[in-house]
Design a binder for these strands. Structure first.
Ligand SMILES: [Zn+2]
Ligand SMILES: [Zn+2]
Ligand SMILES: [Zn+2]
Ligand SMILES: [Zn+2]
Lengths: 142, 142
DNA sequence: TTGTTCTTGCAACTGAGTTGCATTTGATGT
DNA sequence: ACATCAAATGCAACTCAGTTGCAAGAACAA
């Protein structure tokens, strides 16, 4: 169990040709366990007492994004949410939903948004779709 | 020409039941003439020397968004870009493209992105699509 | 015109993210 | 195991878009 996660994380770093350090492993582990996008602060909280410095976390995430291990999923309240990119194709990430009532955000892995029209000379390397509205719970209680 | 814009702007404020003040008129005029999303700072630049205080601009924009006159189009470098919402349907705004090479952003009014799958209980009130890649110019010179 | 309410401007504040630099650490070769 | 060096970390100070509180000013209805 734990060893499996640890091994997976080490493997991710190795195949991205990045140095295996404790902060990096801890950050990737937090993201791997989360199954949802996390902010820098949430990552630190989940790592706990001996979490890396915030600068270290930002720089590690930046490195991961450059290595395409991690995506910037969406922005909310001026802060970025990060998630592992293992569910995304190169050009298209899954949509993210934010509830205007309760504020929770969900990854909509199932909801596929095809891009029909040709893009007239634009080369699209990444697609980010943000949805806002009411989540199932809030829409029932409304 | 100028009178027409001015009248249009006054009409927008009136039908939204908002007080017609000089700062608000100037801000809407700037957005109307721009035909592309603008930041708070860009709005101030376009208004010129007697531009309203930045707090006033932010508060006016906030009011416009609440009244659905203006949309928050996208975020870039931690700053919001605002645009008139007259091209958007209630639930879907047009996609915005940002070039990773030259940094310019475009409104892709033509590119329609249909939402196929049913959204399983979610009520989607707004869709924001951000595209990143290479613009026609940059993709040619690359 | 008067009075009420909404709007504006200013100054001080907030907080996510960044930068510079000294220190530590992982990887590589001996 | 040890030396070496580039890369990663931690800390403090900084940046800057956006916010907040409050006093003064302007729109609008009576
Ligand atoms: Zn909800
Ligand atoms: Zn996601
Ligand atoms: Zn370009
Ligand atoms: Zn647009």
């Amino acid at each position: 169990m734990k060893g499996e996660t640890k091994h997976k994380v080490q493997q991710m770093l190795k195949s991205a040709r990045l140095r295996r350090t404790k902060p990096r492993s801890d950050i990737l582990t937090a993201l791997l366990k989360a199954h949802q996008p996390l902010t820098r602060e949430q990552i630190a909280e989940r790592i706990g007492a001996c979490a890396p410095n915030k600068v270290t976390i930002y720089r590690a995430l930046e490195t991961f994004v450059a290595a395409d291990i991690v995506h910037k999923a969406f922005v909310q309240n001026r802060t970025w949410y990060f998630e592992l990119s293992h569910h995304c194709t190169a050009d298209q990430c899954h949509p993210h939903f934010c509830c205007r009532c309760c504020g929770r955000t969900d990854c909509l892995h199932e909801l596929h948004i095809p891009m029909t029209a040709d893009s007239g000379g634009y080369i699209i390397q990444h697609q980010r779709v943000q949805l806002e509205g009411l989540c199932p719970k809030c829409s029932k209680s409304a």
